[in-house]
Design a protein around this nucleic acid. Structure first.
Length: 502
RNA sequence: AGCGAGGUAGGGUAGCCUGGAGUGCCCGCCGGGCUCAUAACCCGGAGAUCGGAGGUUCAAAUCCUUCCCUCGCUACCA
């Protein structure tokens, strides 16, 4: 059985989750569930990035310890993961996961052993909020462009990673898609970045600048491992690196890292170079999504428009949110969220189109045809069924390519075709005229379409999928089942899949 | 400044790579039909100089040149 190891990036837990985190969770989850439907053995990991100075600062502000803040916020991310139906196997918290510390240090030692880590004095204008050094011309009137605060001059001796050494190999790996970056325009960005020249980067911080928070550099108590070096290691931790060799050999390398556009560089360049240095196999692909704006505006605390996905799920349920994120937001580009739009989508698409088609089909069979349908053959519907099977194949292919929004569009199209077929064939008239056989044939086609919808919806809306299929006594199954015509149907009790919102 | 992504009916998008009647989708608007269904569904219509200007071509939203505008990134932000 082929395996598929997919990861979400691990969010900074210095604040609550926002809708963008939900987007990434759902994207990864949809891909993972699709792979399961294809019969692959899927492993998915996520986690919390906790060893960062930002956490310490945020905690101090709130009068808490860093550990307490991590506990609290990681808890919220875990809650989001559960609520949004993320089917994950491991949630790696970098500050307390016992295996993770070993991983980070083993990774460090391996890079060190390869001669890629060296000490260097480094100084510059440092913004605490960003945790990074700025050059003069990056500053905005002498202030940090992000925080509008005056950066301080910091000088210290740090460990550096010899990134420059890997420039040529990185270029080739990405160019040739051995590490495939999806979509193409992100790949181009990375290639251009590499071509512009790579400098070595700092991978440690002094213990004082880190406020003592973080993982210690092996063999040097005075230095803390830089948060990214540490965080990327969670992808290894999640599948047993340095602890469970059998598990690791089975699942590594990762088949896909799902990340936001802002952190692509760390994955496509730093991470790959680190793994090469440590002589660990390389991940196969990186899928890069955009950011979510809210009502056309960038989300920010100062504007006060940060959307809390947990609240949203409580209000509307997980499935509509998943649907919205997958369909209304382009997989690779920035997309907008608005609650008004969400309501429209629920009422028009989930209730009016999809839910209604399934409901009118099942209710009709139940009330006019005794709840049963024997094999009737597809009759005139055979042609339609062929078109629908083509859409199934297309959606399958789009899912494989990560084109999630196009895939779900195709699935909804199946539902539209069902509604049209139902309408044009007017089975209610056939029943009135006493031609139950003809009505049965129409409904046999419709029921099969509903069943296909049930199967194909699984990656996007697993609960709705289960609920739909349960009404005909089935469960979500392999994607191949979608193209098999069910022989007969028995409708237990039609139940609504989605409800209107006011 | 460099690099990247965009500019398609009132709004949001797809189509562009591999030219062929402005073609599609989700809303909104107008009109009609149906009554199985959660006033859901189906059909039809109005509405676009496909950012501007040149060019290639029998033919350009699509290819080339150029200009304008918006957004993102430019060493550590999902």
């Amino acid at each position: 059985m082929p395996k598929f190891y997919i990861t979400t990036s691990i969010p900074y837990v210095n604040a609550k989750p926002h809708i963008g985190h939900a987007l990434e969770f759902v994207q990864a989850d949809v891909i993972a569930r699709h792979r399961k439907m294809r019969g692959e053995q899927v492993k998915m990991t996520t986690g919390g990035d906790e060893n960062s100075l930002k956490i310490v600062l945020a905690a101090e502000k709130l009068g808490k310890s860093a550990a307490e803040l991590c506990e609290e916020n990681s808890g919220r991310f875990k809650e989001l993961a559960e609520m949004i139906e993320l089917d994950y196997d491991a949630f790696v918290r970098t500050s307390i996961d016992p295996g993770h510390k070993k991983v980070a240090q083993a990774l460090w030692k391996a890079c060190d052993g390869a001669g890629d880590i060296y000490k260097k004095k480094y100084g510059g204008l440092y913004c605490v909020g960003c945790e990074l050094f700025y050059t003069e011309n990056e500053l905005d009137g002498g202030l940090c462009p992000e925080h509008k605060t005056k950066p301080e001059f910091v000088e210290e001796e740090n460990y550096f990673f010899r990134l420059s050494k890997y420039q040529g190999r990185l270029l080739e790996l990405i160019e040739s898609d051995q590490v495939k970056i999806i979509p193409d325009f992100r790949k181009t960005e990375m290639l251009n970045f590499i071509k512009s020249g790579l400098s070595d980067f700092s991978i440690s911080r002094s213990i004082s600048r880190s406020h003592g928070w973080g993982l210690k550099v092996p063999g040097d108590e005075s230095q803390i491992i830089y948060v990214w070096f540490d965080a990327l290691g969670t992808y290894l931790t999640g599948v047993g690196f340095a602890s469970d060799q059998k598990e690791f050999d089975k699942y590594w390398p990762a088949d896909m890292h799902v990340v936001g556009k802002g952190i692509l560089r760390f994955h496509a360049i730093y991470w790959i170079a680190m793994l090469m240095s440590a002589k660990i196999k390389l991940p196969k692909s990186i899928l890069v999504h955009g950011y979510v704006t809210v009502d056309g505006q960038k989300m920010s605390k100062s504007i006060g428009n940060v959307v809390d996905p947990i609240e949203l799920v409580k209000k509307y349920g997980a499935e509509p949110i998943r649907y919205y994120l997958m369909k209304e937001i382009s997989t690779f580009q920035d997309g907008d969220f608005s609650e008004t739009k969400l309501r429209d989508v629920i009422n028009n698409e989930l209730v009016g189109n999809l839910g209604n088609f399934v409901n009118r089909t099942f209710v009709f069979i139940n009330s006019k045809l005794d709840g049963r349908l024997a094999e009737t053959g597809l009759g005139e519907g055979a042609l339609l069924m062929k078109e629908i099977h083509d859409l199934v194949d297309l959606a399958d292919k789009l899912l494989e390519e990560g084109q999630l929004n196009f895939a779900i569009l195709k699935i909804l199209e199946i539902s539209s075709m069902g509604n049209r077929y139902f309408q044009e064939n007017e089975p209610w008239k056939l029943v009135k005229e006493g031609d139950n056989e003809a009505a049965r044939e129409v409904l046999f086609v419709c029921a099969n379409i509903a069943r296909i919808l049930g199967i194909m919806l699984y990656p996007f809306m697993p609960c709705a999928s289960e609920e739909l299929l349960a009404q005909i006594g089935e469960k979500p199954g392999p994607i191949g089942d979608a193209k098999k015509i069910a022989a007969s149907f028995e409708i237990s009790k039609p139940r609504l899949l989605f409800s209107k919102v006011e």
